[in-house]
Design a protein around this nucleic acid. Structure first.
Lengths: 214, 214, 214, 214
DNA sequence: AATGAATGAGGCTTCATTCAT
DNA sequence: TATGAATGAAGCCTCATTCAT
C-alpha cells in the first residue's frame, strides 16, 4: 500500500501518494457524521478535494474504504496499547493502569472510537469485515489483557480470579463509557481521564464489597 | 416477546389489534437478519402475512417501526429488571446478583439484544430515537444500578466506591459479553449464565487484587 | 399486443396485465433506435407510459427485456413459418416458395428483424442469450429447411445436392437482404417481395449456370 | 494481421510508426473478446504496451479506433479479393470459385470477420461509420460480384438470371456461415473450405431443382 | 382494512477523455 | 512522446412511500 514512491522529485508529482490517507480521513468524517450507509461517496470525495470517480482509483468500493479504515486507523493501535501494557511485565497492576489510561485516551477521541462503532453497525452485513476486526483487533486486545491477568495471578499481585471474567471487568467499563458517550450522546464521565482510570482501577482491584465481606 | 396473539377469540375476527405485534415481530426478524438499512419493508410485510401497503396502516415509516420496537419490546424489560432488583432493597448484594442474572438472561437472547444493537447502528442518523432510547431505557437502567450501589454503601455492604465507576463496572461486562457474542460473532462465555454471574460478581465484589494489597 | 385478458372488468383494474407487452414494445422501439447499450431504461419507461422503477416490476434487468423480446416476439414466428412450410409436405418446391415469401415478409419489417440484429450485437456479452437464440430460433429454422430439402430430394423434385449447402443457399440471401437493408441502410431490393422471391427461387432452383453446363 | 514490427532496426529506436498498428491489433483483440462497448481503452493500451493516454496520441476516440480498423484491416481485403476475381475476367465461373474460396478463407478467420461483426453491432449508433463501411467495403464487393455475373451472362456461361438475386445467392451463404459460426457459436461447416466452396458452387451454378424441372 | 401498482429520488460505479507534468 | 491522475457525465437499479381501487 505504502505508495511512498516519491523517489523521483519532491512535490513535482501530483501528490498521488497522499491521496489514500486524505480520502480515508474524509471518509471517516462522513461515516462519523452520517453513518456508513448514509455517507455518500461523492461527499467523501469532495471533502478530500477530488471528484467522485477519483476515489475509485484508490479504493474498490465503499466497503473497501471501511476495511482500509480498520486496517490503517485501528489495527496499529492494538499493537501500540498492548505493547505498552506488556512492557510493564513485572508489575501487572501498573500495566493495567497503563492500559486503561491508554485506551481511555483513545476512546475519548470520537474519531478513533468511530471505527469500532462502524464495525458494530455493519457487522451483520459484512461478515468478512467483522471477522477481520475480531481477529485483528478485538481478539488480540482481549488476549493481551487476559495474559496480563494470568501473570498478575502468578506473581501474586492478583487473586485467583476467573481470568475471563476479570478481562470483561477491565474492558467492559471502557466499552460502556464509549457507547454511552459517543453513541447515546450521554454525558461523559471522561472529562478527567485520570480520575476515570483511578476510580475504575479502585473498583476493579479492590472490589466494591465492604472489607469484612471478604 | 409477549405476543398478545388473540388466539382465544374465534377465527372470524379480523384480529386487527394483533397486527401491530405481528408486524413488529417480523420487523425484528428482518432487522436482525439484515440490519436496519438492508431490511426491506416488503419482506417484513410478507413475513407478517400482509401486504407492503398495510404496514403503513399501522406504522408511519421504517423508523417508526424501530421506535415501536424499542417502545414495546425493550422499554418494558427495563422496568421489569430494575423492579426485581429494587425489590431486594434491603440486600443490595443479592439485588446485584438478581440484576446481573436477569440481564444476562435477556442479553443472551439475540432477539432482545438485537434492539440495542440496532439503536447503536442508527443512532447517528436518528438522534431523536437515540435520545428516546437513552431516556427511556439506558438512563433508567443506569440510574437503578447507581441507586443500588448508593444504598449498598449506606447499608455498609459496599465500600465507599465511586458509584459511577461501580455502575460502569456492573453494566460494562454485560455489554462486552453481548457485543462479543452477538456483534463480533465471537465465542460466548455465557454458556452457563449462572457461572457467568458468579464469576463476574466475585470479581466485582472482591476485586482482583490480592488481599494484602488492600 | 392486444392482451384481451379483460375477463374481470372493463377498465377498472390498473391494466397491470397489459404492462409487460407495452414495455416490450417500447423497449424494442428504443433498442431499434439506439441499440441495446445506448437505449436507456428510463426512455423505455417513458415511452411505455410509466416510470423508470415500474419497469423493474416486470423485468429484472435490461438483459431480461431483451430475453423477453426474443421469447415473445421472435420465437413464435419460427413455429409459424416452419409450420407453414411443413404443411406443404408433398410439394417441397411450393413449400420453399411459401417459406421464402413468409420470411421475406417478416424480414422486411424492421421491428421484427431488429431482434436478430440485437442478438448479433450482444452475442459476445450474453452467451446465454445467444445460445438460447440459437437453440430456440436459429437451429429449428435451419433444421426445418434442411428437412424440406431432404424431402425434396427423396421426392425427386430436387437434385442430389448437399442439403447443408442448399440450406445456406436458401437462408443466406434472406440474411444478406436484411443486413443490407436494415443494418447498412442500403437500398433494399425488397420493394416488391413477390419479385424478390420469384427471382431468388429461380436462381436457387435452376442455378445460374447456362443449361449446356449441366 | 500484418504487424509491421520494426524488429530489424536496433532497439534504441522508438518505433513510433509501428505504434498505430500495435494499438489496432490490441483494439481488435479486445473488441473481439468483449464487444465494442465493453472493451476498455485502458485494456487496449496495456495490451499494446503503452498507457491509456498514449492511445489518444494516435486515435481521437474509441470510435476512431473502429474506423481505423475498418480502414486498415478490411478495406484492403476488398481490393485484394475483387481484384483476384476480376483477373479471371474471361472465365466468370472460375472467378466465382476464386472469389468464394478467397472470402471463405477470410471469413473463417475470426479476427477478420470480427470487423464486419463490429460494424453490425454499432451501425445504429455510428451512421457515419456504417455508411463508410457500406461505401468502402460492402458496396464495392457487391458490385464486383454483380459485374462478374453480368459478364458471365454476356459470355454465355450464365443464364439470364437476375444479377441482383444471383449476387445475393453468392454472398448470402458466406454471410450465413460466418454469422452462424462466429456470432451464434454454432458448429461450422467450414472445416474443409474446399468442400464448402465446391458444394456451394454446385448448388449455385446448377441449382437444386431436378433436371427435368428446367 | 387491505392491496400492490406506481413513483422517483438517490447512490454506487464505470470509463472515455483530458491534461499537467 | 508518454504518463496516469483526475474528471464528470451517465445509467442501472433499489426501495420507502403513496394512493387508486
Amino acid at each position: 500500500m505504502a505508495r511512498t514512491t516519491t523517489k523521483p522529485k519532491p512535490t513535482w508529482r501530483r501528490r498521488a501518494d497522499a491521496r489514500p490517507d486524505e480520502i480515508l480521513t474524509a471518509a471517516l468524517d462522513e461515516f462519523i457524521a452520517k453513518g456508513f450507509d448514509s455517507a455518500r461517496i461523492e461527499d467523501i470525495a469532495t471533502n478530500a478535494g477530488l471528484s467522485k470517480g477519483a476515489v475509485y482509483l484508490y479504493f474498490d468500493s465503499k466497503e473497501a474504504l471501511l476495511r482500509a479504515l480498520v486496517e490503517r486507523e485501528i489495527a496499529p493501535l492494538v499493537g501500540r496499547v498492548t505493547a505498552a501494557a506488556e512492557a510493564e511485565a513485572q508489575d501487572p497492576k501498573a500495566a493495567l493502569t497503563l492500559f486503561l489510561g491508554g485506551v481511555a485516551a483513545l476512546i475519548s477521541n470520537p474519531r478513533i472510537f468511530a471505527v469500532p462503532r462502524l464495525v458494530i453497525s455493519i457487522a451483520a452485513r459484512f461478515p468478512e469485515l467483522r471477522d477481520h476486526y475480531r481477529r485483528a483487533v478485538a481478539e488480540p486486545g482481549r488476549a493481551a489483557i487476559e495474559r496480563l491477568i494470568r501473570r498478575g495471578i502468578e506473581l501474586g499481585q492478583f487473586r485467583q480470579v476467573d481470568p475471563v471474567a476479570a478481562t470483561r471487568a477491565i474492558i467492559g467499563p471502557l466499552l460502556f463509557e464509549a457507547l454511552w458517550t459517543h453513541v447515546l450522546a450521554g454525558e461523559s464521565a471522561l472529562g478527567d481521564p485520570a480520575k476515570f482510570v483511578r476510580a475504575q482501577i479502585d473498583v476493579l482491584v479492590n472490589g466494591i464489597g465492604a472489607s469484612n465481606d471478604r
